[in-house]
Amino acid sequence: MSKAALALLLLATATPAFADEAADIVRDADRFRRPAESFVWKISITSQEAKKAPSVDGFEVFVKGGGRSLVKFVAPPRNVGRSLLALGRDLWIYLPDAGKPVRIPFSQRLVGQVANGDVARADYSGDYDAKLLGEETVDGVACHVIDLKARTKDVTYAAVKYWVSRDGRRPVRAEFYAATGTLLKTGTFEGFKEVVPGAVLATRLTLVDGIRKDRSSVLDYGSIVVRDIPEKYFDKNSMKSLD
């Protein structure tokens, strides 16, 4: 067998192993963004554009297994009463002015640099196929570099370049890309704390516009309550009564 054929054989047998390892890493990293199957999380998003005064939006996020989440807008007053419901890869917004849930895409902008999917969905391992690209050091942290490709068109980003720490497999950094290959934004995961017993979570995600670097949004994950949430929270027909 020639050396070239041997190399091809090795590559062919090694690729699935790399893919499996990459998928494991992404699954482990997801745990730093989701403490349990069912929980309630308060998030504030501070958006900054150039030298303008920052704006702050508040959300209460109800999450349940099966990729289900309800995001209630709790501040400022002009947004109170709105909510987002994500059921797997399907998303609705409830607007009090319309009086009914309306189907919208995940990629639509929520506030600042934050897309609906950034808040309503935190399941990279379920949404993307992972491939290990190599290793790099980010701010002194040795990281796996992983290429994430969207499994379907129904997710927020077509591709993500994802840096996960070798030690502990924590999410460190992400670059989010459109289908055209355009860099939409970069994200940095910080503030790892044990916010509930036994679960260390990233409590801050900073998103910076891919082109206009003076545009950014900081997602601060506040108090968290792990509890069972009734099914009606995840029924679009109940969005109005949960307002």
Binding site: R103, P105, F106, K153, V155, T156
Partner: peptide, 11 residues
């Protein structure tokens, strides 16, 4: 009927 085909929604 409604369906999302990112980034388009048909109804």
């Amino acid at each position: 009927v409604a369906k999302s085909i990112e980034p388009v929604v048909i109804r």
